[in-house]
Computed example of a mutant assay.
Amino acid sequence: MKNKSILGLVVTAALMVVGCKTQKGKLEFVHPDSGKRIAYGEEVKLTLNFPNAVVDSVVYSIDGNVLETKRDTGSVVFDTKKYGLGDRSLSAKVYAEGKEDIAYSNVMVLPPNAKNYGFEVVNTFPHDDQSFTQGLQFQDGVMYESSGRYEKSQLRKVDLQTGKVLQSIALEDKYFAEGMTIVDDKIVLLTWLEHVALIYDKHNLKQTGAFNYGSSKEGWGLTYDGEKMIKSDGTNRLYFLNAKTGAEESSIAVYDENGAVDNLNELEYIDGKVYANVYQQEIIVIINPVSGAVEGRINLVGMYNENRKPVDNELNGIAYDHKAKRLFVTGKLWSSLFEIKLVER
């Protein structure tokens, strides 16, 4: 009886081992870990835990688009350069023994660390402390500025040296003026919540047209790269608009090494990059408009402290003198406009 009992134990143990080998757990990604942050440009192996060693096929997908189909349990390579920045959804559908199963995961693809800059004030110019600055652009010796707030919104031409308003036009009370840019001989001015952009003749400031936004939420910042207008709406997206019709044709999401960069506000296009104020921060980010990567970050803390209020007194306004290579910044209700030089840290 004793020998039979021992034999029974051995058989039971053997069955348990076999059972463990045939139940290796559920189908799931084991690499990379779900939620992992991955550097843009990295090639990442996607590896699964397979309940069964034999499969008919495995279909790997990124954001619903097929990456590769395999006939075995080997890993596949995910080239992050081909899919861009941000959240990427991973899936693997396995076909085996007439059945199918699917595993899901996700990763965050982020750019390298942005360069950090401080600033040096080169010149200080007077600025109208009643101007709720929303858009700023320098062209042919004249500073163009849009000033916001309902029942007070204006579009202006301003003398840089004196801060004197050379010419101005008031918007209808129902509009809150936001960012603006110059496209050839016209000025395109965004409104905040009204979902309409107003078009003016650059020379006499007479309105000549208008267009409605597409899918972007609101009107915040606007610039022009020589081919398309680039618009922000307070999120982490930049929208590319047809320069003739205003139609939204594409968009990109903006990320730095920490994640999505929200609250993108006033914009300026400088030497192939988009400079953007970050709302309620003393920061300007320098964005690659192709990838959406933040390549630089300008810290402007301490530049203007004159009777600063916690709200409605924010840094907002970037202009660039493309001929003399001068960078100007100001803010809402600031009494000064600054020419600055970047200092890499």
Rank of each mutant, 00 (worst) to 15 (best):
M1N: 13
M1Y: 15
S5A: 14
S5L: 15
I6V: 08
L7K: 15
G8E: 08
V11Q: 02
V11S: 11
T12A: 15
T12C: 13
M16I: 15
G19M: 15
Q23R: 14
L27M: 02
F29C: 09
I38K: 07
E42C: 09
V44W: 07
L46Y: 13
L48S: 13
F50Q: 00
A53P: 02
D56G: 05
V58H: 03
V59N: 06
Y60V: 06
Y60F: 15
N65R: 14
V66I: 10
L67A: 05
L67D: 04
T69C: 08
G74V: 03
S75H: 02
V76L: 11
G86K: 11
G86T: 13
A92G: 06
A96P: 10
A96D: 07
E97V: 04
D101F: 09
A103Q: 10
S105Y: 06
V109E: 06
V109C: 02
P111Q: 04
P111A: 08
N113R: 09
N113W: 05
A114P: 01
N116E: 13
V121G: 10
N123W: 03
F125V: 01
Q130P: 05
Q134R: 01
Q134P: 03
G141C: 12
E145W: 13
G148K: 04
G148L: 04
R149W: 03
Y150K: 03
Q154T: 15
L166W: 05
Q167A: 10
K174E: 14
A177W: 03
V188A: 10
A197R: 07
A197Q: 11
I199W: 00
L205K: 08
G209F: 08
A210R: 09
F211D: 11
S216I: 01
W220F: 09
S232H: 07
G234Q: 03
G234I: 07
T235E: 00
L238G: 01
Y239P: 07
A243K: 12
E249Q: 14
E249V: 00
I252R: 01
A253F: 07
E257C: 09
A260W: 02
N263E: 09
L267Y: 02
E268L: 04
N277Q: 12
I286F: 04
P289T: 09
N299R: 01
L300P: 02
M303K: 07
M303L: 12
Y304K: 03
E306C: 07
N313A: 01
I318R: 00
Y320F: 11
D321K: 06
F328P: 01
V329C: 02
T330S: 11
G331R: 02
S335T: 11
E339V: 02
I340Q: 13
K341R: 13
